[in-house]
Each structure stands twice: as C-alpha cells, then as structure tokens.
Design a protein around this nucleic acid. Structure first.
Lengths: 193, 193, 193, 193
DNA sequence: AATGAATGAGGTTTCATTCAT
DNA sequence: GATGAATGAAACCTCATTCAT
C-alpha cells in the first residue's frame, strides 16, 4: 500500500472513530470512506486491533514530534516547560480528533503496556526536561512521572473543556494565565503551602 | 427488581466493564455473573446503553456524595479545597473500577449532554466552593470551570498513574505534597509568574 | 374472568391485531391495553394461539349471527341471497377490524381444519339457502361450496377495496348494483355464456 | 450474489413461508434450507421485511407476466377476459405457494401502499382490458376497480377452495362453468336483476 | 498487491410463558 | 382467581475476517 493510501486510511479512521467510537466504526465503513478495500486493509494490518494500535502510535508520535519541534533546547528550562504545555494545549485544540482518540484508547482495554513501552523513546525528552528542571532547582523535586501526570492531566483536561465549548472564542491571554497556573504546580518557587 | 439485585447488577456490570470495556462485555455475561436473567435486566433498563448511562449516573453521584460527606462547610475555603482534592484522589484509588468506567464513558460517544445536565445539581457544590474562594480572594479569579478542569484533570491523572503502579506503596506525605502542588494552580497567592 | 373483562379482552385483542398483525402484538401489550394481567389471560386461554383461535371463532359466529338476523326465512330465495350478500358487505365495512382479522387468520398457518369444522353449524344455513335456491331452480346447479366461494370471495374483496379507500363516500346505489353483479354469478337465469 | 443463488433464495423462502408463515420462518432456517449464509442474505436484503417485500413483488410480477403471456390483444374482449380469469385460476392452482404468500402478505401489516404503487405498471393492462370492454359495451359500466375486485376476489377464493381440497380431481368443464359465472358479473348483457 | 462477496459466531433484544405471592 | 416480575429460548442482525479471483 502506498503512502498516500496509508495516510488516507489513518486520517479517515481517526475521523470516524473520534466521531463514532471504536465499536461504532466497522471495518466496512472505514473501507467505504477511504475507498480502500477491506482486503487491502487486512493485507496491511493483521486485524482491527492492530490497526487501532498502529494509529494510536502514529498519533502519539506525531503529537510528540509537534511538541518538540517547537522546543528550543537552549532556552531556559522554565520557558521550555511553558512552551511545551502551551504547544500541547493548542495541538489538542487543533487536533481534537487526536485528543479524543487518545483518551478513548488509553482508557480502553485495548491498550497494552508494550505499546506504552514502544513509545517511551518518543516521550523521553519530556522526562528529561522535567528532570533537568529539578537539577537546576527550578522544578519541585518530586517524582518526575507524578509531576508530568499532573501537568499533562491538567492541560488535556483543559483542552477537552475548550473543545466542548467550541463556539466560545479562545482568549489567548486567558490560556496563557491558565498555563501559568499549571506551571505553578511544577515550579520550585511556588508556595507549597 | 429488588434493591439487592439492582445493587448486584450495578456492581458486577461496573467490574466487568472496567476489566473488559463496554463492548468486551456482552449482556449475556452480565446476566451470568449477576445471576439475573437477561430478561430481567431488560425489564429494568430499556437497552444496554441505558443501563450504562444509569450506571454512570449512579457512580458519579456516589462519587460526589462521598466527596461532599468529607467536606466541612465551616472550614476555611482553602482547607475545603484541599480536602476535596484529597478525597477525590483516595476515592479514585479505592474505586479504580469507577475511575476507569468514568474515563471510558466520558470519552465515548455514549455520553450525552443531557446526562451531564442531569448531574449538574450533584456537582454544583464544587463550583460554589471555588467561587466562594474567589470572593474571599483565596482563589485566582479565573473562569471557575477552567480552574476546576485543571484541578480535577490533574488529580484524576495522578490517580490513574498510581492505580497503574498498583504494586508500589503509596507514601501519604508524597500524595500530600502533590495535592498541594495541584492546589497551587488555584491559590491566589501562588506566583502566576 | 367475568363477561365484561372477557369482552374487553376480545375487543382490544381484535383492535391490536388488526392494526399490528399477530406477531406485532405481544401478549404484554394486550395485557396493558385491556388492563387485564397476563396471568389472568393465561388462566383463561392456554396460550396465545388458543386465544387467537377463540377470538376467530367468536368473530365468525358474531358475523354469522348478524347476517342471519337480517334474513327472513319466508322471503323468496333470491331476496334472501341478495340480503345476505348485502349484509355481509356492510358488516365488513362496519367491522373492518373483523374483516382484516379473518383474512389474516384464514390465510395463516394458525388456522386448523378442526376450527373450520367447529364453525360448520353456524354457517350451515348459508349452504342451505344456496341449495334451496338450486332446488327452486333459481340458482345455478353447481357445487354449492364453489358458488359460495365465488360470492363470498367477491364480496369480501369488494369490502376490502372500500375499506382501503375509506375517505371516499359510499354510494348505496352503486353498492346495490355491484351486489346484483355478484348475484348474477349465482342466478340460474343469468347467461352462462 | 449470482442469479442461481438469488433464485434459490426466493424459491425456498416462498416454500417455507407458505408452509409456516412469516413468523414461523426464521432467517436462520431460510439460510440453512438455501445453503446461503445469513450474512449473504443480509448482504442482499437490508432486513427480513425487505426480503419479503422483494419476494412479494417478484411473485406478483411473475404472476402478471404469466397471465399476460396467454392473452392475445386482438382477441375479442370477452375472450380476453375469460382467458385472463382462467389463466389466473390455473396459475394459482399450480402455484399454490404463491397464492398463499400473496394472501398472507396482502392482509398483513407488512404491505405498504408504496409497494402497490410500484406494481401499478405491471397490472395496468388488467384495468385497460376492463375499460376497453366498457367502451365496447361488453362490460358493465361500473368503476373498473370495483369490478376487478369482484372478479379477482371470486377467482382467488375459488382457487383457495380447490387448493384446500387438493385430493379431489379438477373437472375442467366445471371450472369453465364457474369462470363463466364469474364473467357474468362483468358482462353487460347479463341480467342486472 | 487489491478486491469484496461470503461467512457465521456471537451480539442485542423480544416475548410467550411460568409461578410465587 | 388475579397478578406481574422473572425467565431464557430464540429471533434478528452485525461485522471481523477469509479467500477465490
């Protein structure tokens, strides 16, 4: 299968599943909407679960790449963190299908520890950035995983809120303030009590 | 259907779905595991979607009730917020099936705006507590909805992390510190920058 | 079960089945619409098939009684036949639910030869009237059963047509002419070729 | 699905339903008896109702085609009508499954006005023949629809009678006389009183 | 490699019937 | 008798997957 077809397969599958869910989206519909025959899809992916898993990995990697593209390794660590969270928020807002798919998938029994392992290298830099911040005493010295969970959980939750209220205008200063708030969870100088 | 059976139906459905997902859990299995015939289930709930919706509402209300039971209206607002987030975290930890069900359901196409409307009264007090905190200048004056999304997103994300690493011992002081971090998102005196 | 309840059971069952068919009408709906519990219905009738069979017999007997009530044994045989067909036509028109039920039932696999046997006495007089007409040489000497089939088939077919076009006004002279036409099938003096 | 399979599907469905009725004939049995998988049937027909509807249309069209094949447009109108009714009678006798299916279907709530509309063109010629007879003053000037209902109702009723008494030998002269009787309903020179 | 008709296990749901109250 | 909650066999239908072309 050539790249264009594969791309169309992923894009359309993402769209359908974000609208209808995993089980509201039969393979036959994916075939019809992409114009790719069911047989060809099964030539490429062993079964539906594998297709979804590959889509998940692709989306997460796209996401990670996007975020890191906008990060400058020589910026002060605080700026890097702020940029990271800001990028994540706006990425989700502009890729709400991806946001929904990720949340569906990560909370479903389809997700396997192995998949998360495979993605480790792609998100390694996030952990590094946080840990570097701790070494520089700019970030609270807490388990990096926990801090990351707090920050990412907060941002994706915020993104989901803004996606739902699609109509309302996004006021960038408000977002900026909210992301500062998120950062205050991590910042070392932030009052712990 | 008497209360005991209904309770068993809800409990067992929650367990099965948190383990196997919505579509990995056929009605026949729910019937077998509860010892309630399929016919009786359909006597009580119009269809599977309605059953899941009612289960969702029940879980959310149980959750809200639990959290509010441990809140003292006359405590200082800061303490109330801290207690709330702490309660939520430990509730999720002890009700990981509920946590997983809620996350599955809220990210699925099954959820309907009407359901969220129906639950409004039960979560009203959360909004009130935040707004009161703003009036007392203890809480940043940001859209309450957004602040709540940040805090709740952070806490549930943290709970999911701890649920996954079930084996590891929970260190209460660490949790306490992390929840303080969450609160620093909301606290007015916290450096916004 | 007292008479009023039994009557209501029959009336309502007839209505439901004429609107929805045998299999579109569950026992539970009959129970709800009559206000008679399912248990009571099963006390009275062994099963659904028996209920329908009893209803069928009741309707056919009501129908036969009505027709014969309007027949005068001392009228000339030709008048009696004409009255009979006319009565049948208007009976069907005013009891379209009965007409539909009968046609459904008689063409379904539910009908049993025994039931038709049981009704024999009630329709005996029809056969007698035709046979008497033959003896008086007013009626073609053909197998009575066949002649009856022709006449009754024609009239019920006509009734079904008029029932369908419910809106249109019935013009009694037109009906009269049409029934005369039906009679011409049977009349001895009618040109056979 | 190729023509042979489709033909087998129709033939076998007709047989089963004429023996067991619509609701005595599950799709699974149709699948087993035809050797066509349930999936393939549903590939071809949206649901059971559509399958039955298509079968009904096919049967009616076959029926109409058969009747018209044996009609000669240049014969005198009286002969055409007689031939038509005779053909109908023998067609039903030899296609008793079709006769039973049609009667079941037309008296069931499954039938839809639209379907009858769709068949209009195929039965148009019947109406034309009757109307032509009226213009030629060979046929009583009554509403064509009503006259047709009378004649067809009589003939199909007669056919049903002969089908039931399958054992008895058919005496063609008797049938001929009976069909003449049916025609006397329509014939202009037939005594109206 | 691409196709899509065919398959049938297994899902959701219905509803005739039972039986304890 | 009357009731109606409970039952579960069996219906309709879906859809992941196969495989001959």
């Amino acid at each position: 299968m050539n790249d264009a077809r594969l791309e169309r397969l992923f894009t359309e599958t993402l769209r359908l599943i974000s609208e209808q869910g995993f089980y509201g989206t039969p393979m036959s519909q994916i075939a019809k909407c992409t114009g790719i025959s069911i047989g060809s899809i099964y030539n490429q992916f062993e079964n539906k679960e594998v297709l979804l898993n590959e889509l998940y990995k692709k989306i997460k990697i796209d996401f990670a790449n996007h975020v890191f593209e906008h990060l400058h390794a020589h910026d002060p660590i605080e700026k890097q963190l702020k940029d990271m969270l800001t990028q994540i928020f706006y990425y989700y807002l502009e890729h709400r299908q991806a946001l929904n798919f990720i949340e569906q998938y990560e909370n479903s029994p389809l997700i396997r520890p192995q998949t998360q392992q495979d993605l480790q290298p792609h998100v390694q830099r996030i952990v590094q950035t946080f840990k570097q911040g701790m070494q520089e005493h700019k970030i609270k010295e807490l388990p990096a995983e926990s801090l990351i969970a707090l920050c990412f959980g907060a941002v994706s939750s915020l993104a989901k809120l803004y996606v739902r209220k699609a109509a309302q205008q996004i006021r960038p200063e408000e977002i900026d303030t909210l992301i500062d708030a998120v950062l205050s969870m991590a910042r070392a100088d932030s009052a712990g009590r």
